[in-house]
Amino acid sequence: MITFVVRRLLLAIVTTWLISVLSFAIIQLPPGDFVDTYIAQMAASGSSVSAQAAEAMRKMYGLDRPFYVQYGKWVGRIVHGDFGESMEWRRPVLEVIGDRLWLTVLLAFAALIITWGLALPIGIYSAVRQYSIGDYLFTLVGFVGIAVPNFLLALVLMYFSFRWFGASVGGLFSAKYSLLPWSWGKVWDLMKHLPLPAVVLALGGTAQLVRIMRANLLDELRRPYVVTARAKGLTETRVVLKYPVRAALNPFASNIAYLFPFLVSGSVIISIVLGLPTVGPLLVEALISQDMFLAGSIVLLLGVLTVIGTFISDLVLMWVDPRLRQGMG
């Protein structure tokens, strides 16, 4: 069991390192370097930078050193919380990202809760009452849910909520709060704005998980241990919930890690449509304007969060599967 945790932890560290190398490679990828970009910007605004000054800047930033030295310096700065400066915003990267990272995580987490909260009971119902009218209905809705792009759903929901309630649903905050510092009022305001984008984001994944849960459970319902449980005189509800559902839950635990990147990348278009202050649109903008320090930092931060998510999902998996816990995995 401890071997399992240690192995996973080591794997997580190696993965994080690889992500950091990749992020740095993204930063280095465009031709030229930061100083070239800076010079070009200066030239565009009418002033010029002397060759000496440029050289001094290169020395200062260590741009004249080989790749691995630059990478080492970059990592060293990040460890101290300095992610570099966004060229487009002319502000430290962390300041630009600001609350967006946590709002992204919050949105993904809310979507995850909704996904599970809907997918589990519907999946169980669909499997236990296979080929019933309810099953067919959920199947239909589910396939529509998988097929409809979620930005379209977002647009439709925005239209209707504006038509019927006269409310604008864009953003995660009301205009009143969006620029104010954090307060209980602002948190409550966020809570009121969160459900709609979370639901939009959750639906595609929910439809898929319903199918997965239904298929898993149908497999499990035919296993001999279900007959054993019935032969003990348990009620059907208890038989189903204690035994096959428990077994069908395993894939859900390993799904946490897979869902997070899916939700983050899935949220980009929705965030643009609904005007949500998440990192998605920021990343897109950064990539378009070649703001590489910002883009690389976002990729790095999301990557690290995903690694953490994977590690947590491994722990959950170990918790739900006695075979792993007993070191039989």
């Binding site: 001999p224 241990y225 007959v227 054993t228 449980a229 032969a231 035994y243 077994a247 006695p322």
Partner: peptide, 17 residues
Amino acid sequence: IALVFQEPMASFSQYYT
């Protein structure tokens, strides 16, 4: 009336003691 059947491995759930 009680039942014992074929495959003792498959007849137990692996998730409970």
